[in-house]
C-alpha cells in the first residue's frame, strides 16, 4: 500500500506542535466552567425549591425557655389561623441548637443561652399574604417577633446566581471563540509554509477539498489529543474539589455531584473540540485557496 502519511508535511510545523497544548488549556478551562455552570444550576434549582412558599417566624427569648416556647405556640396558633398558610411547625430547642451548632458549638454548650424560638411555615402556592399585617399581629402576641419571607431574599440570590451562570456561559463561548481563532491561525500558517507543496498538488489536479482534507485531519487529530488531556485534567480537578467540598461542613454549600448525563457533557467536550477544529480548518483552507487565482 501507499503510505498513510499526508502529502503536506503539517506535522513538522511549529504551530502544529503548539496546538494540542493550547487546546488542552482551553478545554480544561471550558470543562471547569461547564462544571461551575452545572453546579450553579443545581444550587439555583435547590434554592428555588427550598425558598418557594416558606416563611420563618423568629420569637425572641422571653424570661425563660418555657415562656419562650409558650409565646412561640401562641404565635404558631395565629399563623395556623392565617389564610394561605398550610403547615406550621415550631422548631424544638434541640432543632434550634442544631442550627447554631456550626457557630456556637454542641447543644451542651448552648443549653443555657437565650436562644430564640423558630417557627417554620409553608405558604400555599399562589397565596398572597399581607406580611406587614401578619408581623404586626405576631408582634402584638410576642413582642419583637419577626417574619422572614425566604422568597424575597432568595429571589435576589437566585437572580444573582443566574447572572453568574450567564457569565460562565459567556466564558465558555469566549474559550470556544479563542479555540477557533487558534485553529485559523495554525491553518493559515500551514498554508503559508506549505505554499509550494499546495501549488504542486493543484498543478497535478488536486481540488481544494483534497487539500483541505489534509488540514482537517491534522487539526482534528491535534485538537482531540489536546482536548482529551484537558478534559481528563478537568475531571480530576472536579473530583478533587468534590472531595474537598464533602469534607467542608457548610450550610447550603454547593455539592459537586453530577448525574450521568452531566458527566456525559464532559465526554462531549473533546468531540465538540474536534468538530470545531474540523470545520474551522475546512472553511479556512477553502476560503484562503478560493481567494487565490
Amino acid at each position: 500500500m501507499i503510505r498513510s502519511q499526508t502529502d503536506i508535511p503539517l506535522e513538522r510545523d511549529a504551530a502544529s506542535r503548539m496546538l494540542p497544548w493550547i487546546i488542552a488549556i482551553m478545554v480544561y478551562l471550558a470543562a471547569l466552567a461547564i462544571a461551575g455552570t452545572l453546579t450553579l444550576s443545581q444550587v439555583i434549582r435547590s434554592w428555588s425549591v427550598a425558598g418557594t412558599g416558606t416563611l420563618t417566624v423568629q420569637v425572641p427569648f422571653g424570661d425563660s425557655a418555657a415562656k419562650t416556647e409558650a409565646l412561640a405556640e401562641r404565635a404558631a396558633s395565629v399563623l395556623r389561623e392565617t389564610p394561605g398558610i398550610s403547615r406550621v411547625r415550631v422548631l424544638s430547642r434541640q432543632d434550634v441548637a442544631g442550627l447554631v451548632k456550626p457557630w456556637l458549638g454542641p447543644a451542651e454548650q448552648t443549653a443555657g443561652l437565650p436562644l430564640p424560638a423558630l417557627i417554620d411555615a409553608s405558604v400555599v402556592g399562589g397565596a398572597s399574604i399581607d406580611l406587614a399585617a401578619l408581623s404586626r399581629r405576631l408582634a402584638g402576641i410576642a413582642p419583637g417577633a419577626t417574619v422572614e419571607d425566604h422568597k424575597k431574599w432568595l429571589d435576589k440570590l437566585v437572580g444573582f446566581a443566574r447572572s453568574i451562570w450567564l457569565v460562565t456561559l459567556l466564558v465558555v463561548a469566549m474559550i470556544l471563540l479563542a479555540a477557533v481563532v487558534t485553529v485559523i491561525f495554525t491553518t493559515r500558517t500551514g498554508l503559508r509554509i506549505h505554499y509550494r507543496v499546495i501549488e504542486v498538488l493543484h498543478l497535478i489536479g488536486a481540488h481544494d477539498r483534497y487539500i483541505s482534507r489534509q488540514f482537517e485531519r491534522q487539526a482534528v487529530m491535534l485538537s482531540l489529543k489536546g482536548a482529551l488531556v484537558g478534559v481528563l485534567l478537568a475531571v480530576l480537578t472536579v473530583v478533587a474539589l468534590a472531595h474537598l467540598a464533602a469534607q467542608v461542613d457548610l450550610i447550603r454549600a454547593p455539592r459537586l455531584v453530577f448525574s450521568v448525563w452531566q458527566w456525559g457533557l464532559f465526554v462531549l467536550v473533546p468531540i465538540v473540540a474536534g468538530l470545531v477544529a474540523l470545520y474551522t480548518a475546512r472553511l479556512t483552507v477553502l476560503r484562503t485557496l478560493g481567494r487565490l487565482t
Binding site: 501507499i2 502529502d7 507543496v197 498538488l201 497535478i204 489536479g205
Partner: peptide, 16 residues
Amino acid sequence: LDHLSTLDNVALPLRV
C-alpha cells in the same frame, strides 16, 4: 515533494 519517497511522489497524481 522532498518529504515523500520516490514512489509516493510518482503516485501523487493517482492519489489525487
